[in-house]
Design a binder for these strands. Structure first.
Lengths: 132, 132
DNA sequence: CGGGATCCCTGCCGATACTG
DNA sequence: CAGTATCGGCAGGGATCCCG
């Protein structure tokens, strides 16, 4: 919890900067966690390597534009690796890096929490909405 | 990890629905985690209850519009509670609920991960950017 | 003090069409 | 197959003004 307190105090101090990312690497990570598709891609790749089209079919709702962009961002952050096989037609495979795999552990904690508590959340929402 | 696999397979199956939230409560939670201010507010409230103006000063970069909205959403989800004291001028206090406090634990894991690995991420980014 | 209402602009993201 | 390029809608969120 001391990391939290640290971050909090850094923010509380104002710190003279505009970009929270500068004082708090957490934002950086959360921006990736928070975006619409990153997690889904990482979770899918947790099972095994996938090719582009495979991923597209596996996630289904994602547009190819977003899949491309998400993959590039994840690769840029070193969370997945990209392997091109110069076949014809070309074939590209994506897989988790060690870094990416290590992120899955804390993420699984969050998933477990969500799974265990989304009932309570929905109840709270219903009650809140009833009161207004 | 079985929850992950489950979610993955549910998504992979297509499932015939458009809204991921319906098949995967994770999205619900992640949307809140991912938004710009929720976590910062929760982390701040982890230390002690805060009044509205106090929070505003503590987080500093947040606009009062977003603070209001973030607090309402968090309250709606049952993560924080709101206590009005009919003094003059009025005084409103926010504090974590048990549910909110329980979320802080898995979040701390993520924070720890981010803290431990943002160096590797930045290195990966720099290398990726150099290669293009 | 603790908000609500309004204006406005930026960036996310989907749809579509094209390329090696 | 595995992308890139372009257009456009619309929601997130900042700035500002107002109110009890």
């Amino acid at each position: 919890m001391s990391h939290l307190e640290e971050a909090v105090r850094a923010v509380a101090a104002g710190h003279g900067r505009k970009d929270i990312g500068e004082i708090c690497p957490i934002r950086d990570v959360l921006d990736r966690i928070g975006d619409k598709w990153s997690i889904l891609v990482l979770m899918t790749l947790a099972a095994r390597p996938y090719r582009f089209g495979e991923l597209r079919r596996a996630i289904a709702d994602i547009s190819q534009r977003m899949l491309t962009q998400t993959l590039r961002d994840l690769q840029r952050d070193g969370l997945i690796s990209r392997h091109v096989f110069p076949t014809n037609p070309p074939s590209v495979e994506y897989r988790l890096t060690k870094l990416g795999a290590s992120l899955l552990k804390p993420m699984a904690e969050l998933v477990r929490w969500a799974d265990a508590n989304h009932g309570a959340i929905n109840k709270a929402r219903a009650q809140f909405d009833r009161a207004s």
